[in-house]
Design a protein around this nucleic acid. Structure first.
Lengths: 220, 220
DNA sequence: TGTACATCAGTGAACGCGCGTTCACTGATGTAC
DNA sequence: TGTACATCAGTGAACGCGCGTTCACTGATGTAC
């Protein structure tokens, strides 16, 4: 697990001997990410983040206006990690494929990356894509794109666009098609990672993922 | 909304003048359902349920072993409501359709019922199908079936079975097919009802639902 | 180059909140005689 | 049919927990002169 390419690297415990912390903002964000990783969005609390940074609880307010502001920052980071997972999968698509096959492979890669991210980084996945509290719109303050400059939603849209350009999908069916694909993949992830199908389906997650992507490919 | 056939009827405020309550177990359960309805699973607390029943907080322990026990009971009730919604949709399928069309219509009805339930009763939907805390396995103590005697998962499986029996789906693809269908529908529900697509897709939920079901039908 | 001083990052203590849960109790009910 | 009594549903008070957030503060830093 710890060698998957899209896992953010945990920071050092930041042994602190100065009065000033040095980079508390970053330390709090990284503590928040660690909390989200193994407890999901609900685990991202100011008190625990400051505890981990070795700092008084109210020190957080120098860097984040509220708990929600920290959560927003953590969520952006989780989205980045998701984009990274999808990009990693996209990188395995052979570029020499004929355009229609290439386009199909791209969409599969996006879906596979999403599913693998959900499985490998459940907490971050939930923080990125399943915030049950009505969270205010993402701020532009925190970037959500991966190294390639596209966020998860954009990566998906690009892949669906490519399907049309390669002639695999009629242009008339394009509008909103990304939502159908996203739904299928998101549903499997939620049911298995976080829901009632964890026990029965979990062990065969990869296989169900591929069958689901078959269904999407045929059905779109 | 309040006339949808699958909405449990709210109980009277239970004006209490006796020392004994009369039916506190039921009152707590109904309060819990009401809480779940407009706050999701996290809103189901013992203290608020007892408050609504007009009773001391610890009185709940005469009827439920813990907060989790109450939540389990509420969840079962939410599953019943889901089954009711799906049955209501199934009842609209014309019985005189030729078997293949009938089987397809049944699967659509199951999916449509699920989606409408998610939209109309978001809180109950989340309580039934999206409990993010790892909740212990459902107990047989609380029934989850609708009036027809089948719970939501069974209704779905029945519909997929019918697809095979009508010759619409090859038997070889049957195992696990219900999981693919469920995933698609569940994902759309989660993204729209509880997630990032609420704003853009919410108004066209019904249309996206039908397109999604087209995709499932073609792709299965 | 040295010193006064403004800035502002982090401290310590405290607030109010709601939660689940436990304790010893009280008093209405219904059964045994 | 009337009365003693066991049962057990609900009370009142309290516990410890963790949370977000506010207040007046302190002390290291870096800049202006």
């Amino acid at each position: 697990m710890s060698t998957l390419p899209f896992m953010p690297t945990p920071s050092a415990p930041a042994a602190r001997k100065t009065y000033r912390h040095g980079d508390l903002r970053r330390a709090l964000l990284e503590a928040g990410i660690a909390l989200a990783r193994d407890g999901g969005p609900a685990a991202v609390t100011l008190r625990e983040a400051t505890r981990r940074a070795g700092v008084a609880p109210n020190a957080a307010y120098r860097h984040f206006a509220s708990q929600q502001a920290l959560l927003l920052a953590v969520r952006a980071s989780a989205l980045q990690a998701g984009a990274r997972a999808m990009e990693a999968e996209l990188a395995t698509v052979p570029p020499e494929l004929p355009p229609p096959d290439h386009a199909r492979a791209r969409l599969r890669a996006v879906g596979t990356g999403y599913l693998r991210f959900a499985k490998a980084e459940t907490g971050l996945f939930r923080t990125a894509f399943a915030l049950s509290d009505k969270l205010i719109q993402a701020t532009p303050e925190w970037p959500t794109a991966g190294p390639g400059g596209r966020n998860p939603y954009e990566l998906l849209c690009d892949a669906v666009d490519a399907l049309v350009q390669a002639g695999v999908m009629p242009a008339a069916k394009r509008p909103g098609a990304e939502i159908l694909a996203w739904s299928a993949v998101h549903g499997l992830a939620m049911l298995v990672v976080d829901g009632p199908l964890a026990a029965p389906v979990g062990p065969h997650f990869e296989m169900f993922g591929q069958r689901l992507l078959d269904m999407v490919e045929k059905g779109l």
